[in-house]
Simulated assay, not measured.
Amino acid sequence: MQIFVDADATPAIAKTLIIKTALRCEVMSTFVANHPIRLPPSPFLANIVVAHGFDVADNYIINAVSKGDLVITNDIVLADAILAKSAKALSVHGEEFIADTIKSKLNARDFMDTMRATGLLNPNQMGKQARYGDKDKIAFANALNRLVR
Rank of each mutant, 00 (worst) to 15 (best):
M1V: 11
I3P: 01
F4T: 01
D6C: 01
T10E: 04
T10H: 06
P11W: 10
A12C: 03
A12I: 04
I13H: 11
A14G: 02
L17G: 00
I18N: 08
I18K: 08
K20R: 15
K20E: 15
K20N: 15
T21R: 08
A22K: 03
L23Y: 03
L23N: 11
R24M: 02
C25L: 11
C25G: 00
V27N: 04
T30L: 02
T30H: 00
A33Q: 05
N34Y: 05
N34E: 08
N34S: 14
L39G: 04
P41C: 07
L45V: 06
N47P: 10
I48E: 09
V50H: 05
V50P: 03
V50L: 07
A51H: 10
F54N: 15
V56K: 12
A57S: 08
N59C: 08
I61L: 06
A64Q: 14
S66P: 09
K67M: 08
G68M: 03
G68C: 09
L70N: 03
I72D: 02
D75I: 01
L78A: 05
D80K: 14
D80N: 12
A81V: 01
I82K: 00
A84F: 07
K85C: 01
A87N: 09
A89I: 06
V92S: 11
H93P: 01
G94A: 09
E96Q: 15
E96N: 09
F97T: 07
I102S: 00
S104E: 15
L106P: 10
A108Y: 10
A108T: 14
D110G: 06
M112T: 13
M112Y: 12
D113V: 04
D113C: 07
D113A: 07
G119E: 08
G119P: 06
G119Q: 06
L120W: 13
L120Q: 12
L120R: 13
L120E: 14
L120H: 12
L121K: 05
L121Q: 09
P123R: 14
M126Q: 14
K128G: 14
K128Q: 12
A130Q: 12
R131C: 06
R131S: 06
R131N: 10
D134A: 11
D134I: 09
D134M: 10
D136L: 02
K137E: 13
K137R: 13
I138S: 07
A139T: 00
A141F: 02
N142P: 03
L144T: 04
N145M: 05
R146P: 07
L147N: 05
V148A: 05
R149A: 05
